[in-house]
Nucleic acid binder design. Structure first.
Lengths: 168, 168
DNA sequence: AGAATACGTCAGCTTTGTTGACATTCCAAG
DNA sequence: CTTGGAATGTCAACAAAGCTGACGTATTCT
């Protein structure tokens, strides 16, 4: 589309050419593979999958969250989440307790074993992220976060922003 | 781990705290969902999946590429790729021609119909990417690309860099 | 001539998503 | 106090897309 780089295009808009956008798309694809590679290796040993990792991550992040809330964060059906959650509960990694205010709800927490796995997984994932952050530097990291946030769906962005940032 | 923010930590390293890294991890997860959402909708109508999109994308990107080359870019097994490729060839979106130099190889090209679908898919994906780029600005985009590149596996990064950037 | 490479295919299995149907439990409104 | 709706759980069936292993064929390299 913008292949011809019309000479009247302002210099400041060169980063919006189709080719630049294509490189960004490919960068997302390739980077996401690296992003999941390390946890995937750990999970495979324990015969869990990415879905288990995501559940564990967000339960750790919001202890006591309800199934419904987790559902809307993860963006999957309850049947899909339930299958994952059931194995985690059976294996003693997640505790499901009946709500006190509303007894229909189940509040989810990680057990000690669950927290241990969470740490193992996120250590691996953070190691790579830390290396990437360190290599790119603080300004690049700020830009990285800005672009990712702008790429989210509106509803998703609400979830993202609602996640407590304990460092600020 | 770095929860306590030791006072002796240099200001310049604050972006490497575990909490900052966690936010980055969540940003990747949430953004990737947005990243694939638009093409996914188009693909669903035509009963194709993300795997078809990836094949189409990289065939468009490297016309005449061989099956083996595509395999190593995508990082899947030949059986998995073959299933996708077969339907694309049957449906007349991809053409497979016997190699001239080496007749064992098949060279893959998009047909006109294939190129049309590629355009439809990448237009949708680029629209979102463009909006994100525009919202974040050129410096943020540079940082975004730097962090993503640093996050890739070494082998993957070679593939990424080998992709022709027609704009430079 | 024989080994290695590139490709295709068959069969079977796994993970993770989907729909649809239906039961249970419980809160809250009438 | 009953009833409607919300939250949860479960069963069944299915699909996409990954995997392994085995095998066949054509071609090229040594």
């Amino acid at each position: 589309m913008n292949q011809g780089l019309p000479p009247q295009m302002g210099q400041s808009l060169l980063f919006l050419t189709d080719e630049q956008l294509r490189k960004g798309i490919e960068a997302m694809f390739f980077a996401y593979r690296g992003f999941t590679a390390d946890p995937d290796r750990i999970l495979a040993e324990k015969s869990y999958g990415r879905a288990h990792h995501r559940a564990i991550h967000f339960i750790n992040r919001s202890p006591g969250t309800t199934v419904n809330n987790l559902l809307s964060i993860l963006g999957v059906t309850k049947q899909s989440l339930n299958r994952v959650l059931r194995t985690l509960i059976e294996d003693g990694l997640v505790a499901s307790t009946v709500g006190t205010r509303d007894k229909r709800e189940r509040h989810l927490h990680l057990t000690d074993a669950g927290a241990a796995l969470e740490r193992e997984l996120s250590d691996a994932q953070r190691d790579r992220m830390r290396a990437a952050y360190r290599a790119a530097g603080p300004e690049a990291v700020a830009g990285f976060r800005q672009v990712l946030e702008a790429m989210m769906d509106d509803e998703t962005r609400q979830h993202y922003k609602a996640m407590k940032d304990r460092s600020e």
